[in-house]
């Protein structure tokens, strides 16, 4: 069996914000095709900064990010054709309906990728993935949507266009138990079925355990441990990921 090709390669990433905050300090990791990779770490560890660099929103101070063979800093537009990104703070255009929003992002994305023929099909899939009634999507403006609904809309299109890499920053944060369960199931199911590679962050250990094929623990902008959930448990001797997290990160002090 050939080694799965890396979809994402992050190498020695350093990010110093204007003002001097060193958010990333030599972060390296690799995500292979079809993986659901979870980045775990305390607030301020540098997860969102990492995602924004991969999504070409921020420029790294040094280091390299390659998505599907494309150097993100050198060819940002090419890189953006390969990724979708759902930021931590989800939003939506107040005066547009969910459907109008989906139509805009899906068609923009697929047209740029040279696949205009897939727009209709991907749109249908996105509608289904939201799990929202069609009349809500068609008739109600996004200003009426709850945070959970907005998140579902965002995650839905980010998966439905079948990017090489979908980046989801804390996709279930702020959602109630039921909503986050459903969203988690959606992501897991879709990623498995269509082999969409997913990179996400989370504070929910249960979520990571059930959803991720591999996890990386990040602290002060550096990776401190990495592996499949089962491997991590084995290495740390912890009973569950929460315990492992406490030993790996909380125990050694915050950055």
């Amino acid at each position: 069996m050939a080694a799965p090709s890396p979809v994402l390669h992050v190498e020695g990433l350093v990010k110093v914000y204007p003002g001097g905050t060193r958010a990333l300090d030599g972060l390296s990791f690799t995500v292979s095709e079809g993986e659901v990779y979870g980045l775990l770490g305390p607030n301020g560890a540098g997860k969102s900064t990492t995602f924004r660099i991969i999504a070409t929103l921020l420029k790294p101070t040094s280091g390299r990010v390659v998505v599907d063979g494309v150097d993100v800093a050198a060819s940002p537009l090419e890189a953006r054709k390969r990724i979708t990104y759902v930021p931590e703070e989800v939003g939506g255009y107040r005066r547009l309906t969910g459907m109008e929003y989906l139509r805009f992002v899906v068609s923009t994305y697929l047209r740029a990728r040279g696949e205009p023929g897939r727009i209709g099909e991907a749109l249908e899939e996105a509608v289904e993935l939201t799990g929202l009634p069609r009349e809500v999507l068609e008739e109600r403006k996004m200003s009426d949507y709850s945070k959970g609904m907005k998140r579902r809309v965002q995650v839905a299109w980010a998966l439905a266009v079948r990017p090489r890499l979908a980046i989801l920053d804390e996709p279930t944060s702020g959602l109630d138990v039921e909503a986050s369960y459903e969203l988690r199931e959606t992501i897991a199911e879709y990623a498995r079925r269509h082999r969409v590679t997913v990179l996400l962050s989370s504070h929910n250990m249960l979520e990571v355990e059930t959803l991720c094929t591999r996890v990386g623990f990040i602290r002060s902008g550096r990776l401190v441990a990495e592996g499949a959930p089962a491997e991590i448990l084995e290495e740390t001797g912890a009973r569950n990921l929460e315990e492992a997290y406490m030993r790996l990160i909380a125990g050694s002090g915050r950055g």
Partner: peptide, 18 residues
């Protein structure tokens, strides 16, 4: 300002649009 306030700016900028 609206993109920022509606929290849509980051998605817009991550789309494959020049």
């Amino acid at each position: 300002g609206a993109e920022r306030e509606e929290r849509t700016l980051e998605v817009l900028l991550s789309l494959p649009l020049p």
